[in-house]
Design a protein around this nucleic acid. Structure first.
Length: 660
RNA sequence: GCCGCUUUAGCUCAGUCGGUAGAGCAAUUCACUCGUAAUGAAUAGGUCAUCGGUUCGACUCCGAUAAGCGGCUCCA
């Protein structure tokens, strides 16, 4: 048996003996943890077939990291069952920057449990266990995993792994079932798990560059109808240094947390007296909010919108007309009675704008008719989801509705998308992508949506076309549509990598019908308009929160609550500096003067901590020269700037929306 | 909503075994008038989240509620 095989290794043709494995090809290089054979990820110890194209998988590559993290998840699961043999296994896939594993246990894990598990994992890692792959039939797997009810359920779902649960495809592939045994150096089997693989050649490679991060409950297969399992999150990296870099990154992200910075910079707070998810903006946060509002109001008018105003509450019947009740009832606050009539707080502005449209006859000549306002809406968010400014119960949408003919719809959607993208650029946000949210026609969610198949198909096709033409990254979000129509949303990433839905553009054929909206066409017939909902910030509150994190509180000059902070070298120069700041105020620049009795270095420290873009210093030298000195956030200096020039410099930075 | 954790001065946090609370920063006052990240001293500040229970006695133990944190589910 010494037949020769001809294979391609990393692009080069090679002749090797039959039976050659990945380990034979790449075993020398410890960074190679798996291989791709004709595109398929494989364990290194597997034999390479004739004619195959083989690529090494580096531990630092996306595939390699997934293998590392998935194997680490196995080590965690082994540790859990070692400590608590009664723990039942859920799924344990790699995720961004780490992995998790779900367990069904009697009592949730405590922080002490997690510490103990981390130690148990280290012992397993040090044993240098190998992962041994074994193909099993469905029946064999069922027999072997009789005591693992969740794994049995997965076996039953084989082939439909994608629907089984996010991450379930790591356990079962579409093809044959496999079990991976963890084998000690003496050949004894320590543990085994139903798994598609591939895995590291040895647990040794995990080294000590892993960490258990936290535990939390998670619903089995992602549905709140199912029992909750206890999920342990962990992370794993090719080296200790990379693990350190990751934890440093998390610490850095924590410093940018808008909830923390919001309190430190005196921007906003959540008074307990008001209730969960109801923010108040302090004067400094109010400045940013107003700058955002001024900007977006002006931009809407430039883009052909007309500013309207509507109330916060209405008779409940309006929301029956719109379809919010019952389709959106869960998110609306309960009704309250006024003289025998039920009223509701509004959760969306569209029904009110429809009434503006309907207030008189409309002509095709008026279309597109674009109505816009800052609509304050109230949503009964479940207690567990309220989160800083990014998920609140009362917020302002910069909400608009464009009423158009069917023919005008694509151009209007393009118009709105460009509007949104321009806004993102002006606010300096660049880490974002588009999401196309569509309805679900199967499964339990399908009854959440109203309208005909033809309507949905047309609306979805138009949105998809515009989104694709934008050339931006586009992610599908099946089932994420509003009940009345599909939507494009712009998703922004915050400092800790979470993504937030900001702008949305929604195509709605349902509400015009439900409200009986119509316009008179050129031929004299009455036609139904299409309405296109859009919110550019989405929520003023959320957008502001994301801005705080994006800038870590160091806003560009035009958004800074205080643009220039005057720091006199001694009290003697207060008046001189006040004079300079007064001249700036006349030009609309936001200034403050530090007249506290702190000493100069302390004032500099305070100025620095407050993250103002321009600290303006004046002492004897400056006063004598009719000048001031600039100190920037990075500590750099620009001394002896003539006052006129200084004012010009600040004004320019504001106009340019510059970061300094 | 579900699971787990947390709640002490404006902020960050100590508080031993159940015997009625302490620091730093911030604030206020005084002195210092100072050129680039903390001058010194003094003063004031608390229904220990709220309500109930156990106890001679509760910040401490138990329960409920509220708010927050980490997830899940859900969303702008």
């Amino acid at each position: 048996m010494s037949a020769q095989l001809s294979i391609h290794v990393a692009g080069d043709e090679r002749s090797v003996q039959q039976g050659t494995t990945g380990t034979d090809l790449f075993g020398e290089d410890r960074r190679v943890v798996a291989m791709r054979v004709d595109g398929q990820l494989r364990d290194l110890f597997r034999e390479v077939p004739d004619g195959a194209a083989v690529e090494p998988v580096d531990i630092g590559s996306p595939d390699g990291l997934n293998v590392l993290r998935h194997s680490t998840a196995h080590v965690l699961a082994q540790a859990v069952q070692q400590v608590n043999p009664a723990a039942k296994l859920g799924i344990g896939p790699p995720i961004t920057d780490g992995f998790y594993y779900d367990f069904d246990v009697e009592t949730p894990f405590t922080p002490e449990d997690l510490k103990a598990l981390e130690k148990a994992m280290q012992r397993i890692v040090n044993e240098g266990q190998t992962f041994s792959r074994r193909v099993v039939s469905d029946d064999e797997a069922r027999a072997e995993l009789a005591h693992e009810p969740f794994k049995l359920e997965l076996i039953g779902l084989k082939g439909g792994a994608a629907e089984a649960a996010d991450g379930a495809e790591a356990e079962i592939g579409a093809g044959e079932l496999t079990i991976y045994d963890n084998v000690r150096r003496d050949g004894s089997v320590a543990w085994g798990d139903l798994c598609r693989g591939p895995h590291l050649p040895s647990t040794k490679l995990i080294g000590n560059a892993y960490k258990i991060m936290r535990s939390a409950a998670a619903y089995w297969r992602g549905s709140e109808k199912n029992p909750q399992l206890q999920r342990i999150y962990g992370t794993a990296w090719p080296s200790k240094e990379e693990l350190r870099a990751y934890t440093d990154r998390l610490a850095e992200a924590e410093k940018r947390d808008h909830r923390k910075l919001g309190a430190e910079l005196d921007l906003f707070s959540f008074p307990e007296e008001l209730g969960s998810g109801l923010p108040v903006f302090h004067p400094k946060g109010g400045v940013i909010k107003r700058e955002m509002e001024d900007y977006v109001r002006r931009r809407h008018i430039e883009e052909g919108f007309e500013y309207v105003g509507t109330p916060h509450i209405s008779k409940e019947a309006l929301f029956h007309t719109s379809g919010h009740l019952p389709y959106y009832a869960e998110s609306m606050f309960p009704s309250f009675d006024l003289d025998g009539v039920d009223y509701r707080l509004k959760a969306m502005n569209c029904p009110m704008h429809n009434l503006v449209f309907k207030s008189r006859g409309r002509s095709y000549r008026e279309l597109p008719l674009r109505l816009f306002e800052f609509g304050h809406v109230y949503r009964n968010e479940k207690s567990g989801v309220v989160h800083g400014l990014t998920r609140v119960r009362g917020f302002a949408q910069d909400d608009s509705h464009s009423y158009v003919t069917r023919e005008q719809a694509p151009a209007e959607i393009k118009h709105l998308l460009n509007f949104c993208l321009g806004l993102f650029r002006d606010f300096g946000l660049d880490d974002f992508y588009l999401e196309l949210s569509t309805r679900e026609t199967e499964g339990e969610k399908k009854d959440k949506f109203i309208g005909s198949d033809e309507q949905w198909d047309e609306a979805t096709a138009i949105l998809e076309q515009v989104a694709t033409e934008s050339g931006l990254e586009l992610v599908a979000d099946p089932g994420g549509a509003a009940y009345y129509g599909p939507k494009i949303s712009v998703q922004a990433r915050d400092a800790i990598g979470r993504t937030w839905q900001m702008s949305t553009i929604q195509y709605d054929f349902n509400q015009p019908e439900r409200f009986g909206l119509e316009y008179q066409a050129a031929d004299g017939t009455r036609q139904q308009p299409v309405m296109i909902h859009s919110a550019k910030f989405g929520s003023i509150e959320r957008f502001l929160g994301v801005l705080v994190e994006h800038y870590a509180g160091a806003f560009p000059v035009w958004l800074s609550p205080v643009q220039v902070l005057g720091v006199p070298v001694a009290a003697e120069y207060d008046d001189y500096l006040r004079g300079v700041l007064d001249r700036m105020k006349e030009k609309g620049i936001r200034t403050e003067l530090d007249v506290s009795d702190d000493r100069f270095p302390k004032k500099i420290r305070n100025a620095s901590k407050s993250k103002v873009p321009f600290t303006l210093i004046a002492g004897d030298e400056d006063r004598a020269a009719g000048a001031v000195s600039f100190r920037y956030r990075d500590g750099s200096q620009k001394n002896g700037v003539p006052v006129d020039e200084a004012i010009e410099l600040v004004q320019q930075a504001i106009t340019d929306r510059a970061q300094v």
